[in-house]
Design a protein around this nucleic acid. Structure first.
Length: 480
RNA sequence: GGCCCCAUCGUCUAGCGGUUAGGACACCGCCCUUUCACGGCGGUGACGGGGGUUCGAGUCCCCCUGGGGUCGCCA
């Protein structure tokens, strides 16, 4: 095959590669922390890009200079870091791209596809009120669309785009199917504010096109923005990406999620002791599933995720399922890792000689790292009071004689490991011919101050012989 | 209110014209066990309502009801 014959083939190959390339993005506006709905959207985009060996871009939508904050951007970045989502290239800031948008706005102006509108905010508000009173849908009346006269003085104009006057804007949504919006429902929306800065629907379309975004996965609160963005794409002759509008996450009552619903901030989950892998697993199953599978590693998610399979209906989150997932991931996290996570909750175990026994005992029962820290403290710290019900239940019969015998035997013995302590308890049981509970219950009360907790032998080994004796003596003394 | 979208156990979901409607969380029993968990076994529990289409509808169509989104010089 000579070069001339090969060339068309290579061109075709290159085109196919381009077609199959997937570029997604997450585009938050920096007005607050990253919330769980945003994180799910980010995850979906990230998974889809990674699955296809494509790119995932993080773009900060900060065109509204007065509402943005640097802290919010940092909070979003921090949340990304915590859950372990990465992104390709540098973070893109729209505020640094104003000159680009300006050029496109000018282009539309020059081509007569956009125009200056001199209506003031007050006039607009008045118009809207009148329309609402008449029971009409409030919308701009296009009074400056074909304006040729002398513009009013002292009004800084906005730029509006000419939306189609008739027909439908139709697009294919990867989740919801064909969406049709009639032209009458759209108005000539503003693409540049009176201060010259561009607005959301305009810059989104420009950036998605310029950055080569092929798949836009976003919340379905953007569904109605899509036809507006399509108007921009078409006015500029840009390639329209595929859209996937993900239904919202609802609160536990099945109502719209609001700031009042508590744990909205992703970082709040860290503070509550959740593991990022549990949160991600929880979130990926909200609106998406793969048969009966509940547990997904990140690798499996990448392998199996497909935005086309996302549910059409909104889903309510339920914390108890997150708890279950978190408990699962805690059980499967190496002790060393747990010990370092525990430090965020004021528990420092790194130098404790029985840390393995302690963590092993706790990881089976804790739902969160925070809870785990609490349980550990209950073991490590001498009880200051005794559970009332426990006292009634455990301190009866010959409990005193039993514990005294136990103390006597323990004092006479070397004890370090759980088996050593277990052996002492066993001897008491044998000698007194009693059931394990007869000694177990008062002993547990002495050690923990309450009736629930890990294996007694483990607890004694963790705190050691001396503290065990101290605690038993304390109980004996307290209830003479 | 207009427009758009949606609807299977309390919750997350499987189902893609013929299923005893499956799984998970939660809940309730039982087992394991010195206790609490974990784990194992079992149970309660759903196709919002009404019309069609079809030999046959959770699955297709229409209406109602309910829910969500949206109607900014915010994103």
């Amino acid at each position: 095959m000579n070069q001339g014959a090969l060339r068309p083939f290579l061109v075709k190959l290159a085109k196919n590669i381009e077609v199959s390339m997937v570029v997604t993005r997450f585009a938050p506006s920096p007005t607050g922390y990253l919330h769980i709905g945003g994180l799910r959207t980010a995850l979906f985009n990230w998974l889809w890009a990674r699955k296809n060996g494509g790119k995932f871009i993080l773009r900060i939508e900060d065109t509204d200079l007065v509402r943005n904050s640097k802290e919010a951007t940092e909070a979003i970045l921090e949340a990304f870091k915590w859950v372990g989502l990465d992104y390709d290239g540098e973070v893109a800031y729209q505020s640094k791209r104003f000159d680009i948008y300006k050029r496109y706005i000018q282009k539309l102006l020059d081509e007569g596809k956009a125009y200056y509108c001199y209506m003031s905010k007050e006039e607009l508000d008045k118009l809207r009120q009148e329309q609402i009173q008449r029971g009409e849908r409030p919308r701009y009346d296009r009074r400056y669309r074909d304006f040729t006269g002398t513009p009013p003085q002292g009004v800084k104009p906005v730029v509006r785009i000419k939306a189609p006057l008739e027909g439908d804007v139709v697009f294919e949504d990867g989740i919801k199917g064909t969406i049709t919006i009639r032209a009458e429902e759209l108005d000539d929306f503003i693409i540049a504010r009176s201060d010259g800065t561009p607005t959301y629907n305009f810059v989104v379309a420009i950036d998605d096109a310029l950055m080569g975004i092929t798949d836009v996965i976003r919340g379905d609160d953007h569904l109605y923005n899509t036809p507006k963005q399509i108007i921009v794409y078409e006015a500029l002759g840009l390639k329209i990406p595929r859209f996937y509008h993900v239904p919202m996450i609802l609160n536990e009552q099945g109502k719209k999620l609001s700031k009042r619903d508590g744990a909205m901030d992703v970082m709040e989950y860290k503070r509550m002791g959740y593991l990022p892998e549990a949160l991600l697993n929880f979130l990926v199953r909200l609106g998406w599933s793969y048969g009966d599978q509940e547990i997904f590693t990140l690798k499996e998610m990448i392998e199996l995720f497909d935005p086309k399979e996302i549910n059409k209906a909104p889903s309510a989150y339920n914390l108890s399922k997150l708890d279950w997932l978190n408990a699962h991931y805690i059980k499967n996290t190496p002790n060393e890792k747990l010990i370092s996570l525990l430090e965020d909750f004021g528990l420092f175990l790194a130098n404790h000689d029985k840390k393995e026994i302690l963590v092993d005992a706790l990881k089976e029962r804790a739902k969160t790292i925070k809870e785990m820290a609490q349980m550990a403290k209950e073991i490590l710290e001498e009880p200051q009071s005794y559970d009332e019900k426990g006292v009634k239940k455990a301190l009866k019969g010959e409990w005193r004689e039993i514990l005294e015998l136990f103390l006597q035997k323990l004092q006479a013995k070397e004890a370090h490991l759980p088996v050593d302590f277990h052996q002492v308890v066993e001897e008491v049981v044998q000698e007194r011919k009693i059931g394990f509970g007869k000694i177990g219950q008062p002993l547990r009360l002495a050690l923990l101050g309450k009736m629930a907790g890990p294996d007694l032998s483990d607890i004694m080994a963790i705190i050691g012989k001396d503290k065990t004796i101290q605690r038993v003596e304390k109980l004996l003394k307290r209830y003479q």
